[in-house]
Simulated assay, not measured.
Amino acid sequence: MAALLPLAEAQAQLLALAPALPTETLPLVEAAGRWTAEQVLARRTQPAADLSAMDGYAIRFAEMPGPWRVVGESAAGSTLGFTLAAGEAARIFTGAPVPAGADAILLQEEAQRGGDRLVLAGEGPPHAGAHIRRTGSDFASGDALIEPGARLTPARIALAATGGHGALAVRRRPRIALISTGDELVPAGEPVDGVCLPSSNAPMLATLLAAETPAIVEDRGIVPDDLAATIAAADAARGADIIVTTGGASVGDRDFVRPALEAAGATIDFWRVALKPGKPIMAAKLGSTIVLGLPGNPVSAFVTARLFLLPLVRHLGGAADPFDSPETAQLSTPLPATGKRMEFLRGQRSGGMVQALGSQDSAALAMLAAANVLIIRPPFAPAAAAGDVVELFSIA
């Protein structure tokens, strides 16, 4: 039997199976959550003029403490028709253009006005230029606002809008078909007899994808442990960008995913990764569709979905960096040495401390639901003591 594939190598091979999806141009709100397909450049300068950052009066700093004669008013969006001469001031509001001749804003709570006469009634602005947003201080026309492959967060949507864009080029949403395999499975919510199990992987993966990606997900139901039925299910899902199967990818007599894919004409790229939990994971290409075979145990399916499925969806969606970045924390309890496989332990982090949960069984869903991190343990790592720093991924 071939040696187990290291995690990083398997991830790289998976992403190499297909390039990012084609682009489409969408209105800003519809583009939210996608990844940009091209660099977004500013079409305008922001601010387009010197603007007041506060409500108050536009003055000459050198003329403090006054008095000044108020000769006009500037509101947001207005076009000024005057210039301040020596000894003059203008009433001004937040976001309004600063009239020529002024170089500071006197806050209204530090001003005393009687008719057109204005005097200082507080400390006043600390220096020339105080409380003024200078032209182009945010960005200038032609500046790069968003790099290709960046996720369009609410803040980036606002930045693009302010930069003059009403629509952006993004990658098409990946289409994903979920197939659950196993004679023991029944749809969630239906009566369960004997040792049968409610199907939990498809709802779990669908909600994980919905929370983390803009993918279009279709649950294609449960397929029995039957070669012909598995071939037919794979063939029927060819229109998806990714087919995700759970269960049936191991080496048992009732594991039909691999032989079914081969019979359907798929090319197996890799099978079995040096990973715990999640060793029997498989990647294949069925025509232009990527097939990702995840383990059937729900914890294994969850861990491998975070390590393989989410990065793959982000990659197809055009993400510049599709992988999660690990964080660090100190162990509050010790951990044993590891073997030849990389391990991802379900744990709980509180503040800067983390501990592994009691049961690490790959079917223990209660522990998975209680976890908020996956603690990363490299292969052949020595025992770790309380206080040692470990890497982890946040999952909640």
Rank of each mutant, 00 (worst) to 15 (best):
L208T: 03
A234F: 15
A228Y: 07
P214R: 07
P198N: 10
D219I: 12
V195R: 14
S200F: 04
R220M: 04
I231K: 07
C196H: 13
I231L: 07
S199E: 15
V195P: 09
V195D: 14
E190D: 05
A232Y: 11
A188N: 01
A236D: 07
T230Q: 03
P203G: 03
P224D: 05
A233C: 08
D225K: 01
E212V: 00
A229K: 11
S200G: 01
D235E: 15
L227Q: 13
A229C: 11
L205W: 06
E218H: 09
R238K: 13
N201D: 10
C196W: 00
V223Q: 03
S199G: 12
N201G: 06
D219G: 13
A228P: 03
R220S: 05
D235H: 09
L227Y: 06
P187V: 02
A234Y: 11
R220I: 00
S199M: 15
T213L: 03
A233D: 12
P214S: 13
R238A: 10
A233F: 08
V186Q: 04
T207Y: 12
A210I: 03
S200K: 01
E212M: 05
A233P: 11
A210R: 11
L209C: 11
L208H: 05
S200C: 04
A215Y: 04
L208D: 09
A232L: 10
A234C: 14
P198E: 11
I222T: 05
L197M: 14
L208G: 08
V192T: 09
D226L: 07
P203S: 02
S200N: 00
V217L: 04
L227K: 08
L227A: 11
V217P: 01
I231S: 01
E190G: 00
P203Y: 04
R238W: 11
A202S: 15
L205A: 06
T207M: 14
A228K: 10
A206G: 15
A233T: 07
L227F: 10
G221A: 10
C196N: 14
I216G: 00
V195E: 13
E218D: 13
A228W: 05
A211G: 15
D193C: 06
A206M: 12
L205E: 01
T207A: 15
T230E: 01
V186C: 01
A232H: 14
L209W: 05
G189V: 08
C196K: 11
G221S: 12
V223M: 01
T213A: 05
A229S: 15
L209E: 07
P198K: 05
D219P: 12
V192Q: 02
R220Y: 04
T207V: 10
D219Q: 13
D193M: 10
A188V: 07
V195F: 14
R220L: 06
A234L: 14
P191G: 06
E212Y: 02
C196G: 09
N201Y: 06
R220D: 04
N201L: 05
A237V: 01
A233L: 04
